[in-house]
Amino acid sequence: MATSSGGGRTGGRVLAYLESPKNLAGGACGLAGLVLTFTGAAGPYWPVVVAGLYGAGALLAPPQRRAPPDFPDPSAQWEEVRGDFGRLRGYLADVELPAPAGERLAALTDRLAALLEPGWVAEVLAADPDGLHAVSRAVRQDVPEAVDAYVRTRWWTRIAPGQEPPERHLERQLALLHEEAERLADRLRDAEARRQESHTRYLEDRSQD
């Protein structure tokens, strides 16, 4: 089996070389050498001439280019994050939280929903890899981890009272995540503002020409 597999790989490499630009270019130059041979220009050294022309053609031919990996388009990544956000909201709808934490969570999810709004907002976010990563991390990791840790800790607190209320940590975590989302929104807004200002300067400069 190993010999058969190795032979198959060798045969594949030989076939790939026969179809490669290097072999085709070398063959074309070698054919030119045969033409010189038939016309008598190569003289008695025609094998050397043909081989030399083939080698020169193979060396001058561009190397065969391998296609780069096909990574997902940024818009496809945005669609995946938006789909995960929908599943997250379904999970959060079944979780009971105290009023302060619930309000903070609602404010955070509203901000995330705005950042994941379809249309031109999605185009802006999809064009910002760091921003899309931050939203993806919040949706897929930070928010579910914060809420799940609260639910687990709350159960232990009920059977072992006297510890620090778990909702304090949850409220702080949600506040930090909301601040992070706000900073991202501010950064994207500033980028759009700079784009607008740049267009104004362009029109002003053009009007002076």
Rank of each mutant, 00 (worst) to 15 (best):
P165W: 06
Q141D: 15
E167S: 08
T153V: 14
Q141N: 10
E123Q: 13
Y150F: 15
W156K: 10
L132E: 07
I159G: 03
Q173F: 02
R172H: 09
R168C: 00
A181Y: 02
D148Q: 12
R154L: 10
D186A: 13
A181C: 05
V124M: 09
Q141W: 10
Q163F: 08
A134S: 14
D128R: 12
A146S: 09
L177Y: 07
H133A: 15
V135K: 07
P144W: 01
L188F: 04
D130G: 08
D186Y: 05
R187I: 00
V124P: 01
D148H: 12
Q141L: 13
R172Y: 08
P129T: 02
E123L: 07
P165M: 03
A175L: 07
R168F: 09
A138F: 06
V135T: 07
L176V: 10
R154I: 03
V147I: 05
L188D: 05
P144V: 02
D148N: 15
V135Q: 06
W156D: 13
W120H: 14
D142Q: 09
L177R: 15
V151A: 13
A127C: 05
A149M: 10
L184Q: 05
E164T: 11
L188C: 06
H133S: 14
P118R: 00
V147H: 00
E171K: 01
L177N: 13
R189T: 12
P166W: 02
A138K: 09
T157Y: 10
D130M: 06
R172P: 01
R158P: 04
G162L: 05
R183C: 09
T157W: 13
R189E: 14
L184H: 03
A134V: 10
A127E: 14
R158N: 10
L170F: 04
L170P: 03
R187A: 08
Y150V: 04
P165V: 03
G162Q: 03
E182C: 11
L184R: 01
G131N: 11
R187T: 04
R172A: 15
D186H: 11
P129D: 02
Y150P: 08
W120T: 15
P129W: 00
E167I: 04
V139S: 04
R158V: 10
P166D: 04
D130F: 04
R137Q: 14
A181R: 08
Q163A: 14
R168V: 07
R152E: 11
E145G: 08
E164D: 11
A138V: 09
W156Y: 14
D142S: 10
E180W: 09
A181G: 15
S136P: 05
P161A: 02
G119F: 00
H133L: 13
D142P: 00
A138D: 13
T153G: 05
W120E: 13
D142K: 09
A146K: 01
R183V: 11
T153F: 08
G119T: 00
G119K: 00
Q163E: 14
L177C: 08
E164L: 12
W120F: 14
A185V: 04
L125D: 03
V143E: 10
A122V: 03
E179W: 04
H169A: 13
P144H: 01
A149V: 12
G119S: 02
E145S: 12
